[in-house]
Design a protein around this nucleic acid. Structure first.
Lengths: 208, 208
DNA sequence: ACATTAACCAAGCGTGTGCTTGGTTGTCAA
DNA sequence: TTGACAACCAAGCACACGCTTGGTTAATGT
């Protein structure tokens, strides 16, 4: 299945650093099951009984690992964004060519959206409203880091005259456009991820 | 307030044709209140008691107008898309220049997203999952009409060599990008709607 | 004057939900 | 062998939710 999260080289490192939970631990399996259920049915329609059944325990046992239902969503989201951050930096490290960096960032985000790194990333936008204000603030720090890095690369591209839009606008447009691919683009369909990246760059009239 | 729906010239016509509900009728007020609550808190977290309180009746009285809660969402969505369709066609009627048609479509969709035509339009994507399959099918007919019209204009632009992307991809990208503006762009901020349209066209490297 | 109807009230039923509580089991180190 | 701890069970509480039922009120048409 898609959720073979441990095959990603970044994961063991992040687990060791205490940034994310070991996917094979009891808590980690709960997070994985929760994430996939939240994606399927949405946070509000997923019950703690659903989650418990998915991992084969009783609903009350969940609260040995988490204080309440919302904290599960918080954990899913913050771990998803942490993993995305790590992969984002790795995707462009050592690269000088701005167009190549742009492509790498787009591809990296699309990989996150389409389940290469677990299903949590898409929840960041679709289930955002179910986080309390305090939790939103917590995740926002990581999101800001992610967003501003994207903008900085777009700014480079603009400085070199490769694009005409303001980086601020482009980032918002691109985030929306890429997130939306999660609702219509399927890897088993007629197009590959590379072709999707290509069409994105074509839209922005970026050179090869 | 924003919801002065009756000031739109299209509305009385659509009401007379039985396509949408008179916003000033009891049922229409229920729809308006529901739409705004669904947008604020989401469908799942909006209770029938919330809706009833908003229009000043008791919760049970809602079911004199609608068979169940979901049917309220269905009505909100299908009326929103019907209104958007009517305004879309009007926005380009008589226009020959493809770039101008493109701009008009973008502006029209942004107006819908940002509440010029009621708050229902954004629910079409954000609360889609809360419709039953049967209801989705029903709304999908109208959405398809809307989407394919957009694609046809993009195809014109591509035929004239104005853009490089496939219309199919561009439509999906654009829908996502424009929908996302609902989460970060505010009319009372530093930029006007026209400037937003301009940045969209700059992204796609469209001539003036 | 009478019938019909839309709009709503008053009261509450049944159920699904998040979460609690007190206890049990298995594991592992000293 | 014992103590400590993580993981989980069994049972159920409290309540918010969608929706039902039987009735009332006011307006409209004939």
């Amino acid at each position: 299945m898609h959720g073979a999260l441990n095959q990603l080289p970044e994961v063991p490192v992040l687990v060791a650093d205490g940034v994310i939970t070991d996917p094979e631990s009891a808590k980690g399996r709960l997070l994985g099951a929760s994430a996939s259920l939240f994606k399927q049915k949405g946070f509000a329609r997923t019950t703690v009984r659903d989650i418990a059944a998915e991992v084969g325990i009783l609903s009350g046992s969940i609260f040995h690992h988490f204080p309440n239902k919302e904290s599960i969503l918080l954990a899913v989201m913050s771990e998803a964004i942490s993993l995305a951050l790590a992969r984002m930096h790795k995707a462009v490290e050592g690269e000088q060519d701005v167009v190549k960096k742009f492509r790498a960032l787009v591809r990296c985000e699309l990989e996150a959206i389409h389940g290469f790194t677990g299903v949590g990333f898409t929840l960041l936008s679709s289930e955002w409203r179910y986080l309390s204000e305090a939790s939103q603030k917590e995740v926002l720090k990581l999101r800001d880091e992610y967003e501003s890095f994207h903008r900085s690369v777009y700014a480079e591209a603009k400085a070199q005259g490769l694009i005409a839009v303001e980086p601020f606008f482009l980032r918002h447009f691109l985030r929306g456009a890429l997130a939306e691919t999660g609702h219509w683009f399927h890897l088993d369909g007629n197009y590959s991820l590379d072709e999707l990246v290509e069409q994105v760059c074509l839209t922005a009239a970026l050179p090869k």
